[in-house]
Each structure stands twice: as C-alpha cells, then as structure tokens.
Design a protein around this nucleic acid. Structure first.
Lengths: 221, 221
DNA sequence: ATAATAGTGTCTATTAGACACTATTAA
DNA sequence: TTAATAGTGTCTAATAGACACTATTAT
C-alpha cells in the first residue's frame, strides 16, 4: 500500500541585478544526473525532526546557506513526477539577500533569473512558479520582501525591491505610510547609507520580533 | 533512509447553526481506535494519481461527500506526530454546504463546531486550526465562502456567511459593491427566495468559471 | 395599512496617490 | 553653486462606510 519516495526541495530565491533569481544545483546522481535542479534530498527519517528540519538540513548541506526566511510552500506529489515511482516532495521556499549567496562562495550554486529558466527535471518548473507566485502575492500585503535585503537597508532600497517584485512603480509617500503601518522596521540611529552625490538615506533594520516571520497589513500595498 | 508513512487528511468544513464546524469520524483502527478524528487514510501509490486524487478518494470513501471545493492546506510531518513512526500527512481542506453533509446521511460523520473541539489524535487539532485560519484569511479577499452556501443563494444569506467567518458585521452597501467587483456571481432570473413576511431576495449562483476555484479581490473585504 | 427585510442613492469619512517643496550630501 | 536623491506637507482622487430612502412581500 505504501511505497512512496519522500523528499524535500528548496526554492532559494534572491534578488540580483538580473531580477528575481533561483538557486539551481547540478544533480550529482540519477535520475537526471548533471542537470540543473532545485536543491533537494530525501527525508532522513532517522535524523530529521520534521519536514522543516529536513528543509534546513538540505539547504545548509547543499548550499552552505542559512536563509533568514524559510517557509513551507506546498507539497507536490504523484505517480508521474519522478521516474523512480510515486513520490512526495515537501517544497519549501527560502529568501536570502543576494550577497549571502555570492558571499557563501558555493561554486556549484548557480543563480538563474526566474523568467529565463532552463528546462528543469521533475516538476521543478512548477515548484519554482508556485514559489514566485507566492512571493509576489505576499509582497502585496506583508514585509516578506524584507528578507531579500541585507540586515541594514534604506527605505528607497526596500521600495525598489517591492517594485521589482510587484512589477510596478510605487508611490513614495504611500509606500512609507504602509511601512510605518506595518511597524516592522526600526531606524539604526546615526547611520546613513553612502549613496552617490546625493543625500544619504536613513538605515533601518527589522525589529527583532519580525526577524523570522513577516508582518502583515490589513489593507495591501 | 526512507521509511515514511504517507497519509492524507481532510478538514471538511461547513457552516451550521452552531457556527463553523468540522466533520469528524470515529477511527476504525489503531492507533487511537474509536477516537473522533479527521477523515484520513494512506496514500495508495498503486491507484492514486497524486495527492489531490488521494484526497478526493478519501473524502468520498469515508464520508460519501463530493465537496464543491477541495484544496491543499499544508503538509504536516515529523517523527513525533504518529506513534507508528515518521509520517507525512498531506492535509486538504474541503468546503461544503451544511445540507450536503446532513443530506448525505452518513451516520458516522459528526459535525463539531471548531471552537468546541474535543481532544483530537495526532496533530489533528493543529491541522484544523490551520484550516480555519486559512478559510478566515481567504474570506477577507476572495469568494471562497461561496462554497459554504448551496448552489442558489441570496446576497443577504451570503453576507451572513461572510460575517460569521470574519467575526464582524459588514456594511451592506460595501459588501454588495465588493461582490460586484469580485464578478463571480450571476443572478438567476425570475427566481426569488421565500423568506418570512418580507420582500424576497434575488437568487444568485456562481458563474461557471468560478465553480471550482474562488475569485480574488485586489483590495480586501 | 403595517411589519419586515431587500435593494439603492447619496453624503461623509477614510485611505491612497500626485505633486511640490525642503533637506542633505558630493563635486 | 548645482546635481542628485531623501524625506515630508498637503491637496486631490478614490474607496469605504453611514444613513436614509424606496421596493416588495405576507398578514
């Protein structure tokens, strides 16, 4: 009755010069050996506490990255998605600042813009699409995009992140009102970001209570 | 490496006189035999196409009910949730009009208000809580609650459903504006609902395109 | 006619966006 | 000083809610 392959797959997203990108890894075993795919692996029933724990293990062992945000995405399952048999993939999505990936210096990790994906094995294309959709949706009404910037950031930087995710320009006054309403940021006193030949911007960071999970707005934008 | 129990559990929700309620079934086997629990069962890797297919099978075989809405909720997993070992439960939630459950006449199915749940086996209490939260959240900005009323309904009936789910009274004019904006309903010409000694209300039904999935609002409420 | 609830027109309050103005830096 | 971008005050537009009025039924 039961002969199900149980795996975890991670959609590690970041925002770089080429837009929203996903981390892909060359597969080191069959099936689809040597193809670029999502970082993933089997559930280790003897050592993993639960799916989230397995996701953290897979993410850090395959990429060396500790993401500030890691959340359950959805579960992809069925007889057709893996040639080895009926399988379940617990898909998680992680958000991480660009320089955390480049800085981790894992040479196998390739960042690929989500709108220029190569053909992916299994149903990984659908998993990535679901993750992107989830991130874009949550960007409408939460502070989730804050996990794509570094620990310290300015409001103009953050606004540009929101704008890329939402695919539209945002009103500066409204955006700042919404950030105030979200109430997840605190200014870092005295510090300013060095920009070009213009006024430097106030630096902010996430309030401690929101470093692991986003804050939510009543009304979006 | 793999010895994972793969199951499906269904949170079947409906709206009755006692408020939002969940369908529980007396377990017919160990563990927790004879305790009330969510309808669930093992994945049948030899016959189920995928998790959704397994959820439909479990729902109809255990309760005899075909729900107008069935969606993936989340996946609950880990070493501790099932005494038999490391397990994965693909949790789905289903919405169904009250009279579909009572009319199906499955005597084992007990409807229990979600705010007066008995102690439940496994992590079923957490699964139900997640489903209720999801439904309440989606009620803010989608037509999901429409799946809790019958095929034909009036706007005052639907508004009462939204009010129960959201736990607050809604402005009649605003509610109707939002329903118009959602654009998922069509009036059933000529028909009126028989009420008491007052003006009968126009009957509506879901537009065919929205009979399987809800419509969404830009701005909530 | 009266009571009861459905449905709508319209005014007011709240929220979002446009726009302009001041602030602060490098060159 | 100018150029460039940060940050804010304030007016206008859009949206949501309050309230009252008309509509339609049973008694």
């Amino acid at each position: 009755m039961n002969a199900v392959i149980c795996t975890v797959d991670i959609v590690l997203l970041t925002l770089g010069d080429e837009g929203l990108s996903v981390a892909l890894l060359k597969r080191d075993r069959q099936p689809f050996k040597d193809l670029a795919a999502l970082p993933g692996g089997f559930i280790h029933a003897d050592t993993d506490v639960d799916g989230f724990d397995a996701a953290m293990r897979v993410l850090s062992s395959k990429t060396g990255i500790h993401a500030p945000y890691l959340g359950q995405l959805a579960t992809f399952s069925g007889a057709a998605r893996d040639p080895r048999g009926w399988s379940v993939s617990l898909a998680y999505y992680a958000l991480v600042p660009f320089d955390v990936i480049t800085g981790a210096g894992h040479p196998d990790v390739k960042l690929v813009p989500v709108d220029r994906l190569p053909a992916l094995p299994f149903d990984h294309a659908a998993i990535v699409a679901t993750a992107v959709e989830r991130l874009r949706s949550k960007s409408q009404y939460s502070s989730l995009p804050c996990f794509l910037v570094g620990e310290l950031f300015t409001l103009p930087q953050l606004q540009r992140v929101y704008e890329v995710l939402m695919g539209e320009e945002l009103n500066k006054v409204s955006f700042r009102r919404k950030m105030t309403e979200l109430d997840v940021l605190e200014p870092v006193e005295g510090q300013m970001a060095a920009s070009g030949a213009s006024r430097p911007a106030q630096l902010y960071r996430l309030k401690p209570a929101f470093r692991d999970q986003p804050g939510l707005l009543k009304r979006g934008l």
